[in-house]
Amino acid sequence: MIPAPFRHITVETVEEALAALVEFGDEARLLAGGHSLLPLMKLRLATPAVLIDISGISGMDTVQVDGDHLLVGALTRHRTLELSDLVAREAPLLGHVAGLVGDPQVRNRGTIGGSIAHADPAADLPCALVALDGVVGLRSVTGAQREVRAEEFFTGFWSSVMEPDEMITHFRIPRTGSAGWAYEKYTARAQDWATVAVACVAGRVVLGAMSDTPLRASAVEQAIASGATAAEAALTAHEGTNPSGDLRASAEYRAHLATVLTERVLLRSGYGI
C-alpha cells in the first residue's frame, strides 16, 4: 500500500514548522515518527497534500530536569524514554509505559509528541501523562506559548484542545521519584493497543480505553483516600466510564477488566493494603 501523493518538506526549527502549518493550512500535517500517520496514509484514511517533517528539528528530543519537573522534548522517542536512567529515577511510570508501546521497531521511531497529539484513548502514553499530572507545552505561529494540563488536553477520540496552527514543543512532567506507581496494560496479543489500561502514581488513578479519552478514576482515588481496601476501591473503577464494545472486548468485559486491573495497580503502588 502506498500513500496518496503528497509533498514532503523538511523544517529545521519550530518557527519554520509553524510558518509552514499556516502556509499550507488544512492541507498539511506534521510528521514526527510517522508511526500513527503513515499507517493511516497507507490506508488512505489520511490524505494530506503536504507533510511537514519536524523530525530534524534539533534539541527537541531530550529529557532534562527543570526544578520539580522533567522537561521532555516532543520529539523524544519512546525508546529514549524507555532506556533513560533519568526518567527511570525521576518519573519511573513514564519510562516503564514507554517500554510497553508497540514493539521495539515502533519504539525506535515513535515520539511522545506524536503519541499525545494523536490522542488515541487506547494509547499508553496519554494515559500515563494524565496519571503523572503532566503538562503539554504548545506553541503557535504568533509565538504564543501555552501549557495545558494533560487532563484538560484530550477532548475526545483522536482529538484535543490543540489548534490547527499549534504544535507540541515539550512536556512538563512532575518528578514523582519514589512515590508508589504501577501500570497494567491488558492486551489480547503480545503486541497490541490496550484492551484496557490502568495507571496509578502518587495516588492518582487513570483508565485507558474506558472512554474516548484517558479518564481519571476519581471514585477510586477518593475511596483510597478515605481508607478503603484496594478491592473495595477497585469496585468503583467503572464509575463514569463509557467503554465501547469492539472486536477486542465487549463493554461489559472492559468494565470487568477495569476493576481487576485497578485492584492490581493499587496493590502494587502500595495503596489500600
Binding site: 510517522g34 508511526h35 499507517p39 490506508l43 525508546r79 514493539d103 521495539p104 521497531q105 525506535n108 521511531r109
Partner: peptide, 24 residues
C-alpha cells in the same frame, strides 16, 4: 503485512531496527 505489524520488512536504520514499510 504492509500494515506495520509483521516485521518482515525490518531493516537497521542508524543502528536501530525499524519497519521499512513505515518509513518514507
Amino acid at each position: 503485512c504492509d500494515t506495520s505489524n509483521c516485521g518482515a520488512c525490518t531493516v537497521i536504520l542508524d543502528g536501530a531496527a525499524v519497519k521499512s514499510c513505515t518509513v518514507l
